[in-house]
Design a protein around this nucleic acid. Structure first.
Lengths: 243, 243
DNA sequence: GAAGCACCTGTAATTTCCTACAATATTCAA
DNA sequence: TTGAATATTGTAGGAAATTACAGGTGCTTC
């Protein structure tokens, strides 16, 4: 078993067993605090990733996070430029914060954010991106001053983080929003995403061009999109259509 | 630790350590065969899931699967009606085959498929859906005549399956294609995806509307897109732009 | 030095989109 | 039953996109 203490692997599975008995967010936070401490973690945050028009505050599921940093982070909308968040959107595997690269030229705020976290005692961190079915994108980011991150401990942390997230999602039961688009609006957007003009789509669906234009128009209104291209992008982003 | 043998949890982590040293598909298959046997698994298949116009044969990464059943399965395109596949598309959590319900009225082939698998000795199974950056991607389905599936063993199997899949993907990974778009083409598409007209984007980037039109046009050519909306959809799909 | 690419710009004709002001029919929930 | 939502279609004009034909600079590579 090389450098890893046997305790860790056992405790990872015991943590998962314990999770099933936790019924409140606070109970999950307490259990996470205890169990993640063995790897050196002191802070963690479990949050959805905001779309451009959303704010991150409404998407946070659980957190034990330095309050001053959280306030500064949200006040400055740091999630828009956070290298860790950016990497979350591009990978499915857990990663260390240090692996989240950024170009100081194109993203000058990246340095500011990483330094800000360090100022609050969070120099090192580990982050698990969560990619769900309906575009539910989230992450569990964890930090501590002296982490025990090795090829042996990482899978244990990964497993614990995954199950902790699932439990939190279950307990907090985020009401999944129903698809706001009608069938016709979805079809019209889908064909638009495939490069069809309104006239093309009308022929495909056996209605007039004018009807498709109307469907696209109402989809734009529902998605607060400026035009068809915008509406398709929003619909893809929110997984309202599949192509 | 209740009914779970300590060996299992330890061996799960040892399997993950071992994976990093495996360089060939066959080595991964052999290791999986050994390590999954402790839970009663004898067969497994790791496969991407086909789009309507695709065939499943080209998407299979690894398998140790009854040949007769595989041939019958692919010949009849059973993946179109397989209840296990259907459930894969609707959940992110691993599940037992028996949890994959189907309505005999709307999906008469469901019964035929489940019975066919049973005829090849696969009455019981466990399946892990794999969700990547673009949503549903693949699955790892495992079977055996007498499985040790308990709330204690399932997370261990889950972890092993997850890492086995990642390793297989790494070993079999096709070389990732570089982004074919130039910086300006990307910027132009990005603003288009946010609902900006060519004139808007020109003002934003400090060039003329005509220039933006040219960038969009060349992006369409590279992406073989019929128009701007199509190009944005393709770029989002292939993660060439982020919004 | 030539060739290729990225980047920039122009005119002009054509197509497509977007919206405003309509109207009719159906379905479904209050 | 009575709105509200959905689906359908029309006219018409202005905005935007698309394409074809051109041409310029600057940079790198052969």
């Amino acid at each position: 078993m090389s450098g890893r203490s046997l305790d860790h692997t056992v405790q990872a599975f015991e943590f998962i067993e314990e999770l099933d008995r936790l019924a409140t967010p606070q109970a999950i936070i307490d259990a996470m605090e205890r169990s993640f401490a063995q790897y050196g973690f002191e802070n963690f945050i479990m949050t959805g990733l905001p779309h451009p028009e959303q704010r991150i505050e409404g998407l946070v599921l659980l957190k034990k996070w330095p309050l001053g940093w959280y306030e500064r982070y949200t006040r400055n909308s740091y999630d828009r430029h956070d290298p860790v968040i950016h990497l979350c959107r591009r990978t499915v595997q857990p990663f260390e914060w240090g692996e989240a690269r950024y170009d100081p030229d194109t993203n000058p705020k990246g340095q500011e954010i990483m330094q800000g976290a360090a100022d609050f005692g969070m120099r090192q961190g580990y982050c698990l991106p969560i990619h769900g079915l309906n575009g539910f994108e989230a992450c569990l980011s964890m930090s501590g001053p002296d982490l025990d991150l090795t090829p042996q401990t990482k899978p244990a942390i990964h497993l614990m983080a995954m199950y902790a997230f699932e439990r939190a999602r279950l307990v907090l039961a985020p009401a999944p929003r129903p698809n706001p688009l009608t069938n016709r609006e979805r079809e019209a957007l889908r064909w638009a995403a495939l490069g069809k003009s309104a006239a093309d789509t009308g022929e495909i669906l056996g209605v007039t061009e004018r009807t498709i234009t109307a469907h696209i128009g109402s989809a734009c209104a529902k998605l607060t999109a400026a035009n068809k291209t915008h509406a398709v992008a929003r619909a893809l982003q929110h997984r309202l259509i599949e192509i």
